[in-house]
C-alpha cells in the first residue's frame, strides 16, 4: 500500500516536472516562432492583433524582397567567407600553438603561456579603440581579410589553452612510434595529433565560426563600405531603413539565424563538449 502511494506520488511529480519543462520550452521558443511567423506573414506595416505564433497563411514575399536586395545577398556571402576564414585561421593557429606548449620544451615557454593566460581575463571589446586605430594605420579598414585577422586573434589565447589541455591528455605512444619510424615533428602533428584531436578541434572550429558570424561591433566600425558589410550590420541597416516593416527585418534575421541553428543541431556534440570542458560562450 505504502509503495503504491509513493509510486503514484512519483508519477504526479514526473508529470509536474514534464509540464514545467514544457512551459520553459514555450518561453524559449515563443519569441523565435513569433519572429518566424512575422517574417512569413507577408508585408504588413502594422502588427496583427491578436499576435500569432503561427501565421494564417505562409507567404515568402519578405524573403523575396530581402534577397532582391543585392547588398543583403552580398552581406550573406561576406559573412560566410569571413566566418569560414576565421574558423580556419583559429583552428590552425591555436592547434599549432597548443601543440608546442603541450609537447615541446623551449626557452620562454612558461612566460609566454602565463602571458596568454593573463590576457584571457581581459575582455576583447575594450580593445576596440586601439584595434580600430591600428587597422586604420595599416590600411586594413574596409578589408575583409583585415577583419579576419582581428577576429582570429581574439579567441586564440582561450582556444590554445583549451587545445593544450586536450593534447596533454592524449597518450604519447602513437607519437613515439611515429617518431621511431622517422616522422618529422610536422608529420607527427599533422598525421598523428590532429586526427586524434579531431573532436576538440571541431569544437574550436564551430565556436570560432559562430563568433565571427555574429560579430557586430568591429564589423560596424571596420567595414563601412556597403558592399563589404556582414549580415549583422546589414540586418541593423534593414531595421534602420524599414523600421516599420518588421516582416522584412525578420526575414533577413532568419536568414542569419537558420544556419547557426542548423550548425548547432548537427554539431551539438561539439557544442556541448566545448561548453562543458572549457566554458566557451557562444
Amino acid at each position: 500500500m505504502m509503495i503504491a502511494t509513493s509510486n503514484s506520488n512519483q508519477r504526479v511529480l514526473n508529470i509536474a516536472i514534464f509540464l514545467v519543462l514544457c512551459l520553459g520550452v514555450f518561453i524559449a521558443v515563443a519569441p523565435l516562432l513569433y519572429m518566424a511567423s512575422t517574417a512569413l506573414g507577408g508585408v504588413a506595416y502594422v502588427q496583427t492583433y491578436p499576435p500569432r505564433l503561427i501565421p494564417e497563411t505562409i507567404n515568402f514575399e519578405n524573403f523575396e524582397q530581402a534577397f532582391a536586395n543585392r547588398n543583403f545577398l552580398r552581406a550573406f556571402v561576406n559573412s560566410a567567407g569571413v566566418a569560414i576564414a576565421t574558423s580556419l585561421m583559429v583552428t590552425v593557429l591555436a592547434s599549432t600553438m597548443a601543440y608546442s606548449f603541450a609537447r615541446f620544451e623551449f626557452r620562454g615557454k612558461k612566460i609566454i603561456f602565463g602571458g596568454l593566460l593573463l590576457m584571457i581575463m581581459i575582455p576583447g571589446v575594450v580593445l576596440l579603440i586601439p584595434q580600430f586605430i591600428l587597422a586604420k594605420n595599416l590600411g586594413l579598414l574596409n578589408s575583409l581579410p583585415g577583419i579576419v585577422l582581428v577576429y582570429s586573434a581574439g579567441p586564440l589565447a582561450f582556444n590554445t589553452f583549451l587545445l593544450r589541455g586536450f593534447f596533454e591528455n592524449l597518450p604519447r605512444e602513437l607519437e613515439e612510434s611515429a617518431i621511431i619510424d622517422g616522422a618529422s615533428p610536422f608529420t607527427v602533428f599533422w598525421r598523428v595529433m590532429l586526427p586524434l584531436a579531431a573532436p576538440a578541434i571541431s569544437t574550436v572550429a564551430v565556436f570560432s565560426f559562430l563568433g565571427a558570424w555574429d560579430e557586430y561591433l568591429l564589423a560596424l566600425n571596420f567595414l563601412t563600405t556597403e558592399s563589404l558589410r556582414t549580415l549583422p550590420v546589414a540586418i541593423a541597416n534593414f531595421r534602420g531603413q524599414h523600421a516599420s516593416n518588421w516582416g522584412l527585418v525578420f526575414a533577413g534575421s532568419l536568414t542569419a539565424v537558420i544556419p547557426t541553428i542548423l550548425l548547432f543541431v548537427f554539431f551539438q556534440r561539439y557544442f556541448i563538449q566545448g561548453i562543458t570542458s572549457g566554458g566557451v560562450r557562444g
Partner: peptide, 29 residues
C-alpha cells in the same frame, strides 16, 4: 537542445526581436 536555441541566436537579431516583443500598443506580444 531547445533551451540552448536562444544562446546560438545572434545578439543583433534577438535585440530587434525584443524591441518587437515589447512593442507599445495592444498588439505587442
Amino acid at each position: 537542445t531547445v533551451y540552448y536555441l536562444p544562446v546560438v541566436t545572434s545578439w543583433v537579431v534577438v535585440s530587434f526581436l525584443f524591441v518587437y516583443l515589447f512593442s507599445p500598443g495592444d498588439a505587442g506580444l
